[in-house]
Amino acid sequence: MDVLYFAWVRERIGIPREKVETSAATVADFVAELRSREERYELAFSDLTALRVAVDQKLTDFDAPLDGVREVAFFPPMTGG
């Protein structure tokens, strides 16, 4: 699965994207896996209310299932316009 990071999430993790193998059932489970990997993930994901998630380029929430998903992206609230 491709995992993408944007804005300060990208800065805290230190890379814009990576491939991660996971059997996590939901986005929340996957985040828990990442947080246990390294401190930079723990730092980036410490406050989920400050984060948004997109699954296969669609905005969703942390309960979203990951079965069959190709791409997950994490980022702060958007500031377009």
Binding site: F6, P76, T79, G81
Partner: peptide, 10 residues
């Protein structure tokens, strides 16, 4: 598009 389009300003 202010809060639902994936742009981030710095």
């Amino acid at each position: 598009l202010k809060s639902r389009a994936p742009f981030w300003k710095r």
